[in-house]
Design a protein around this nucleic acid. Sequence first.
DNA 1: CTGTTAGCGCGTTCAC
DNA 2: GTGAACGCGCTAACAG
Lengths: 342, 342
Amino acid sequence: MNDGAAPLKGRKATLSDVARLAGVSVATASKALNGRSQVRAETRARVEEAAEQLSFSPNALARGLLAGRTGTVGLLTSDLEGRFSIPILMGAEDAFGAGKVAVFLCDARGDSIREQHHVRALLGRRVDGLIVVGSRTDPRPSLGRDLPVPVVYVYAPSEDPEDLSIIVDNVGAGRQAIEHLISCGRTRIAHISGDPTYGASQERAQGAREALAARGLELIGDVRFGSWTEGWGRAAASMLLAQHPEVDAILCGSDQVARGVMDVLREQDRKIPDDVAVMGFDNWEIFTSHSRPPLTSIDMNFERLGRVAAQRLFAAIDGKPASGVEALDTRVVIRGSTAPGH
Amino acid sequence: MNDGAAPLKGRKATLSDVARLAGVSVATASKALNGRSQVRAETRARVEEAAEQLSFSPNALARGLLAGRTGTVGLLTSDLEGRFSIPILMGAEDAFGAGKVAVFLCDARGDSIREQHHVRALLGRRVDGLIVVGSRTDPRPSLGRDLPVPVVYVYAPSEDPEDLSIIVDNVGAGRQAIEHLISCGRTRIAHISGDPTYGASQERAQGAREALAARGLELIGDVRFGSWTEGWGRAAASMLLAQHPEVDAILCGSDQVARGVMDVLREQDRKIPDDVAVMGFDNWEIFTSHSRPPLTSIDMNFERLGRVAAQRLFAAIDGKPASGVEALDTRVVIRGSTAPGH
DNA sequence: CTGTTAGCGCGTTCAC
DNA sequence: GTGAACGCGCTAACAG
């Protein structure tokens, strides 16, 4: 209907429009705009002015058709909250550098059919590579080996060791947490975790036990698994305090669990951190910064995860593929729940 | 370096590969795969089988080059948390229908330079349209009238009335909230809000006053503005209870503020909702579902916002543009903080 | 019904 | 230095 007679100003200028306005051929215009040296400075200036005047932006499609690369990568996520995807996306954008690469974000909502569908859509748009972000740390099915572009798995590794996966070192995270609590002078440490079917909770617990064992210590009572909720944190803390009133630190499986734990401590008049120190995992600002006191937590460095994934993907696109699992370390963010005054 | 010698299986099958394998011309193959009627069933089957065998996926770039449309829209956001963008993205994907349209998500991080940059990147990739999501409800600068594609502004309206904006009816939201509290039998209602420089807080307050006035009531004390944090909720609640112990309901500017308010109420042994009912805005699950009791809140219907935006954008792409501001209504989600047993 | 031709917008040889 | 010609993968016209 409105194809030819488009009245809009900025319709879409093509390279030949620019060339015509500058009085040169399309080839010359192309060279001029792409900074090739085979063109006189004066001519180049004329072309550039014409391009500016028409607010010309090169058609990346046509360019990609020719070059085989589109300067576009797909980011496939299953993370409804955007808790992981957004920081990872930002890290990836940073690593790719402004303007060079654009990122397609698709949310599969944990549905493998939808995921297959998005993969096809992205491949059809000729993305140069794929980043797959999982919502839990357990291995997930591979997209397959016969894809026409490189794939990097992030947070959730691929089940196929031939794929490249970038994950968080959750065992190390558990170790880090305990080491921090010990360096705060705590020795009677309990661990209230989340859903036991998550690899993350098992790994963090393992790291915690290792770090304690290295000092000849062990956890007060067993690890208490439950769910990743404040409600579980409250319930578990009540039981813990009844059974082991001597506890002087509680490591929590997530910041949300920690919030529940802190509520119970306050209600039972245990001072945080003087009587009992509390720590969480994930460093989710909305939970850690506004609690009383602010919550010490282990940050998963999602932005860095995204940056590294982008770098690896870039290398693979350039013909330097990698495989295996690369685990990145975490970072303790100290706040008032373990260190007074922070 | 690895251009010609790509060893990967699924490199990239082109339509002519399919045609050759099926023993037909590319044109016939195209017709067969696109379901045109001008092809014999047997031939079609042969082509489809060949396409399957080569796991052929049509090059959307080449197709878009010809059609002028790419089946791609850009979603430009400034929302670092993904709190709005993700649900809006999901709504848009739903409305566009699976497979027809893909969505590019770019995060401008509130930086207008980065935003301009992303706009150019998206336009260069020939998106068919743009959805711009703001992080607050105040009007934002227009992207300009001379863009080659339609634009729909979501949540934050454009300053230019010629643009089309889809927003949340925050005045109505404030009214809804008060009406719910009144229907729960409350009459001595206070309002603890967030940052007063946000349009949302002013509008919600206005709606609240209107609904009260309609019943011949008014707020207990002035609206208490502060920040969108639990900390402010705690501070404001303490002051409120000291000055107006008779209060029987507190409407909070956000779920986070409400969490702070509820903490103080519990510490002062005011039963929720029996003594004091509490409500929030935004219906942010992680806050509303796990508080004690679960928090009644006003849901902003972000998915619907995304769906409507996608529909309007689709219409505009089809040559049926619209302009002005379209306000969508909100929805009360009732939980235990206002209705016992919920 | 099927094949041939042309062209979408661009970059890259080559000749001039 | 500059321009004409070709091709990337695909679809819309026509021919056959």
